[in-house]
Design a protein around this nucleic acid. Sequence first.
DNA 1: CAATCAATCACCTGAATTGGTGATTTTCAG
DNA 2: CTGAAAATCACCAATTCAGGTGATTGATTG
Lengths: 211, 211
Amino acid sequence: MTTIIVFEDKANMRESLKLLLENEPDFRVLGLFPHCVRGVEHVLQLNPDIVLMDIDLPEINGIEGTKRIKKASPDTQIVMLTVFEDDTKIFESIKAGADGYLLKKSIPSELIPAIRNTVTGGSPISPGIASRVLHAFREKSKPKALSFELSKREHEVLELLTKGYSYKKIAEHLFVSVDTIGTHIKNIYSKLQVNSASEAVAKALKNRIVE
Amino acid sequence: MTTIIVFEDKANMRESLKLLLENEPDFRVLGLFPHCVRGVEHVLQLNPDIVLMDIDLPEINGIEGTKRIKKASPDTQIVMLTVFEDDTKIFESIKAGADGYLLKKSIPSELIPAIRNTVTGGSPISPGIASRVLHAFREKSKPKALSFELSKREHEVLELLTKGYSYKKIAEHLFVSVDTIGTHIKNIYSKLQVNSASEAVAKALKNRIVE
DNA sequence: CAATCAATCACCTGAATTGGTGATTTTCAG
DNA sequence: CTGAAAATCACCAATTCAGGTGATTGATTG
């Protein structure tokens, strides 16, 4: 038996969800609420397996509600429902701890299997949403392309600088003189257009030149 | 009409896919290949809308194949098929540019709608996979929790240090003396357990204390 | 109200960094 | 083979930094 509560401000949508869910013999709707101001209390009291959460709720929106519920009851699985394919809302929801993300238009066909997947630890995501998540994921992992045309040795020196090594330590590490490291660093500064070690380190990390 | 080619090394799986796909009147299978050594050529020649790519292929694996195909033909949509729910392979595939990710066990029910979603720009992802992607996404975006208990002022100073400001510049910026900044920085070093500006900057950025 | 902590400032010393200039040797592609 | 780029080393001056000690003020909190 899978127990469910719903936060959805529109009455007809609430009713539709109720009908849809109660059509499944192993689903049980424990509650339907028009907002999640008392969301945490409801969840702690009813202890549902699944929460269906509309994103656009009055007073406390679904993202904030999700944060609170996840904090109070981390094992409750929360599936977001939304009409929007808005990047910010998607990412905020994910960060808030949502376990699934469905577009309302796909509810009739996808909701029931989505809930079943959620129960077994999966995260149903509508393809339109997933596409954006993947895109963001790629952005975060890809190198910034900008190599600044550092030579191999300069790159090496920059990497050690990023570790907080002094000129002397770097020199020892690479078996060259301190002056050589000095020259390399001068050249690095010139290529990165910076003029201190900390600035170079910041630029290197932000542009993923190292690590 | 949606055109498709398949890279799959197991003959019976290839046949199953072919039967499944050809059952759809608006799908057309342009080719079935047991490996993707000539993957790029096949794609450029046949110009399919969709590529179904097994991850574990001999010679050149599906991830490498995906990279090459995406490079040569970015608009070709590639859906990965796999038996594994292996984190590394999932993330590598995403980085390689895969547009969808299906577990083979879910193919009978999900493949056809997944392809239709892909055609319209969506990214079908099996819930078991999506769960891992979301998890990784959260890890990447969430602060490392470690605040190192920096005071507000120290945080401010660290932020300016990260921008490459010298002690003097920071002092001017905050309207205090250079010695005050010196003290703050000493305290920051002690809290972060570092002993140079570049090391502090590196630690601050890596642990998302700033930015 | 006392204790703690954050924030402020000062002084000192030795070491390190930055920013020049100049030069030699390797390496590597054309 | 030759020129360009990379890597190496050196010397110098001015500035900056790291690490140490000590001290005052104000806010917070038990």
